[in-house]
Design a protein around this nucleic acid. Sequence first.
DNA 1: CCCTGGAAGTTTTACGTATAACGTCGCCTC
DNA 2: GAGGCGACGTTATACGTAAAACTTCCAGGG
Lengths: 333, 333
Amino acid sequence: MARPTSKDVARAAGVSQAAVSLVLGDKWRGRVSGTTADRVREAARHLGYRPNLAARNLRLGRTRTALLVVPALTNDFFARVYTGAARKAAEHDFGVVLYPSPEGLGPAKDPFASARAALDGVIASSMAARTLTALHGADLPLVMLDSDPTDPTAGAHVNLDVADGMRQITEHLLALGHRHFLHLAADIDSWTFAARARAIQDTLHAAPDTTLRTAPAPLSTTYSRAAATQALTAPGSRPTAVICDGDTIAAGACKAARRLGLRVPEDLSVTGFDDLALATAVDPELTTVHLPAERVGERGMEALTTLLDGHTPTGTALPTQLVIRDSTAPPPS
Amino acid sequence: MARPTSKDVARAAGVSQAAVSLVLGDKWRGRVSGTTADRVREAARHLGYRPNLAARNLRLGRTRTALLVVPALTNDFFARVYTGAARKAAEHDFGVVLYPSPEGLGPAKDPFASARAALDGVIASSMAARTLTALHGADLPLVMLDSDPTDPTAGAHVNLDVADGMRQITEHLLALGHRHFLHLAADIDSWTFAARARAIQDTLHAAPDTTLRTAPAPLSTTYSRAAATQALTAPGSRPTAVICDGDTIAAGACKAARRLGLRVPEDLSVTGFDDLALATAVDPELTTVHLPAERVGERGMEALTTLLDGHTPTGTALPTQLVIRDSTAPPPS
DNA sequence: CCCTGGAAGTTTTACGTATAACGTCGCCTC
DNA sequence: GAGGCGACGTTATACGTAAAACTTCCAGGG
């Protein structure tokens, strides 16, 4: 037999379809007797009734579904953001559908066409936002993750205190005695990376006799290695510490250093960012900044639901935490 | 103004709602004149009309949405499976919604409740399937990934030739001169890992004077390291090669070896499996087996659509490929 | 005895779409 | 000039649900 509808349940219970809707929607008090309600519930259970979501969504005009826009899932930061968002969503009886990297999906597709489910709102990471001109004009509630807090196009922001993370990293290296730094900066034009660079500069500015050089690097272990090699062999003062915008870059930098005959951390300290699974897989394990990725996802979802309730979410930046592992040490004397 | 409906478009174009549906559904040939069709399209474009998917799904009785069930997205194998499935889905004008690790989502939730979108079919990885008793009885078309091909509960299978991958790895090590092996086996009861173990045994069985020991290891770099240390220091013959069921285990094994004073690959060869991003991030880069993860996702989606068309998908196992990197070498003399 | 009001339902309607079924007109054929 | 037929539409209906509006019955108060 085909999937049972509320009408089938009604027939089985000997009531009208409306009564079934009232009972199962838990709006029956004062409208249906307790015994009848029980009878309806029993019939529904027996038939294995599941409401047709398409019909419900059509009727209610909302879907309890959010779109999460991320640049790529193979980055486990975003995978964790998704996990957090999905968990929180489940609490609110919401669903989350993903719109991953347009690169991965071929020709720039309309995200709202790609997400077959109709949407109640959108949560977008800043790194993905640049590809999403389509977001404007869709007038859906929008929550932005780790993006410029002054950007008014978003209904809400969930921010990470990446500047504080970079400050912690830099001060950790300063405390170890480092004075000459190389910043391998992600070659992506994004608020979060700009904020990280500024934090390094600000922190070093307050410290005497320090030098900082910056080189761009792709966010990929394989390709960042070449960038690191080049930056480390460039003429000029040799850095004793390399600050990377991400763990993947740091992994590439470690390899580059080793090929140049530099031991990490004895001859060169290297720091990561993000605290990906990779950070503890490489040897030495990376000193890095832990980002509460799942909390970002949770907060994003929370912000979206408060937005949908007509309120304005309050936004404090989520803290980031320096994690000291084995890739940093005092500079060689 | 609220979101425009097909009725609004009809009014703007001076036609009936049915005509709008015909034109936009591209079923207008012989029913509507070309000029009228153009007028309708122009009106739709001008109003920014987007069909209400809930209504369409209700009307058509299907959603063009598939559920992909994976154990965890933080494993980039599954992230790539998703990417492949989503890309292929887009071609077929389908959507993919995820049901990730029940562990990640808290108390075992009904996957079909969690996916707010109604579903046309399910694609499930074997590693996730054990948690999905709910799949049975849902009588949705089901495609199983990398699972026991003789299992009849699935409508279709997409298989990886993991046995051949393990055979390639083992023969590579044999060719290098290794005779004494340690297999760090994933501590998960799943068809794919059983097949891998069998392949190692079969291959070594055909080679003279070889020994094989097996030890269980968790699929996590951090925890597998302890398992590797224990297995490597256990009394008895010392292996010269460690075959791991996954790259994460291999990364842990490399660290364990180094702490024991063994250089990789000079003193001990270590092999991975899966070819995750991690495989090229660690130093030395791992000799491993590349799995065409995105192709798995694509084939899964293809199988589902042929299933939905009422046909029986043909199933040949996808090939796996040995990738020789820097973690294997001849055994020490 | 009538009137009010609440309990326990039912009938009806609307959500937006796709499509089957039904008109109407003009032209061509026999 | 009757009949047919293709082009160009329109009208009507169904999908499954939620909820507003309506009905019926009965108890209790004045």
